[in-house]
Nucleic acid binder design. Structure first.
Lengths: 202, 202
DNA sequence: AAAAAAATTGTACTGACGTACAGGATGCGG
DNA sequence: CCGCATCCTGTACGTCAGTACAATTTTTTT
């Protein structure tokens, strides 16, 4: 198995990775592009800025090589970016050498190496056509968030009032506060915001 | 590696699977439940009805065993169901014995075995927070669909009228027709419908 | 304890929204 | 030709939404 760690800028592969693949080479961005090195797996660290730009070019440059993104500070956004770009793996840079080898075996056989939390996130969000309103903007107070949740399901002020056991006037007060805080003009645009979009977007 | 093919009803594991794992056992649903057999991988065919109900019980019954769903007629909906239930693999029942073994190796090491098309679908749908309104309900006329598209981005009747070069009254007429046809009561619930949800859903 | 933030409700107003009457124009298939 | 669907527009009315003045009470923070 030919492993290749792609180095961006002054970044270096993690020591544990080196330990896992003593024979592997690590190339800088420019060298790799010109050399079009043949590899089974291309590893890419996220430490240095600019790694994401390179990610998009990997499929074209290395053909059948599978890409694995190695992050020292794994997070959901970065993982999604990696997967969207076609990476078959996303793993922690502080993994043990043995884990790195396992990842290599999985990816090399055509499998995906993805944390189960991330996979659950994928399944969950992909399953519900309408994205859940998950965490509402934190600038909303507790009560305002409740009102926002209600309106996001299509309820009217009167219905919300009945549901929360308060007056319609109070609901309006909360709505006004929500509009001001989030910078939207009416309940419809609020729903679009809460559902993850922006007003005017298709 | 201990492989276990879980048989539902009168279904049988595919011949190719048997070839891949000659030593593996296949148990019927009831026997498996009572025996709580120890296995590294639990394979489950989708041929017989009732397989999906059993899928949800696998984690509790077999502990650390990874689940792989085997389908003779793979499709997206079935795959999503399998993944949602925690399966780490979804593969074609007509795969070669060698492929089955590869799947086993991947899954056994903690990886996911998922077709790249399915993975792309996951990424794509999970990425767009707000689902595009794609195809609008076909019962809408051409003009009504235009109005619906506009309102789905948060525009007011006046804005829509200006955008389409018609009177606000006409927009209202179209809106009314849309409400009747789709069975919603106001623009907010219409947007929720168009975005793929139902009124009252979180 | 004082201050700040949050929650609640009131009246009143404007404008947007939805609908209930309409009617006229166009185009298409029977 | 005539019905049917679609598109466009009008007036009018009731309801809902959002805001501009509020005020009171409770909770939290300093």
């Amino acid at each position: 198995m030919r492993n290749l760690f792609l180095v961006v800028g002054a970044a270096q592969p993690s020591p544990r990775w080196r330990e896992a693949f003593p024979d592997a080479q690590s190339l800088t961005q420019d060298v790799a592009v010109t050399a079009r090195a043949q590899a089974d797996i291309v590893w890419l660290g996220t430490a240095a800025p600019g790694w994401d730009g390179l990610l998009a070019a990997i499929p074209g440059l290395f053909g059948a090589a599978a890409a694995v993104v190695v992050s020292n500070i794994p997070n959901e956004r970065e993982a999604m970016l990696a997967l969207k770009s076609g990476a078959h793996g996303y793993c922690n840079g502080w993994a043990s050498p043995r884990q790195f080898q396992t990842v290599a075996q999985v990816v090399n056989r055509g499998g995906y190496w993805i944390g189960s939390e991330l996979m659950n996130y994928l399944i969950k969000t992909a399953n519900k056509k309408l994205p859940a309103l998950g965490e509402l903007p934190k600038e909303l107070s507790e009560r305002e968030a409740e009102v926002a949740r209600e309106v996001a399901t299509g309820r009217s002020n009167k219905e919300i009032a009945a549901s929360l056991g308060i007056t319609e006037r109070t609901v309006k007060a909360h709505m006004g506060a929500i509009f001001t805080k989030l910078g939207v003009r009416d309940r419809l645009q609020l729903v679009l915001r809460l559902r993850g979009g922006r007003a005017g977007e298709a």
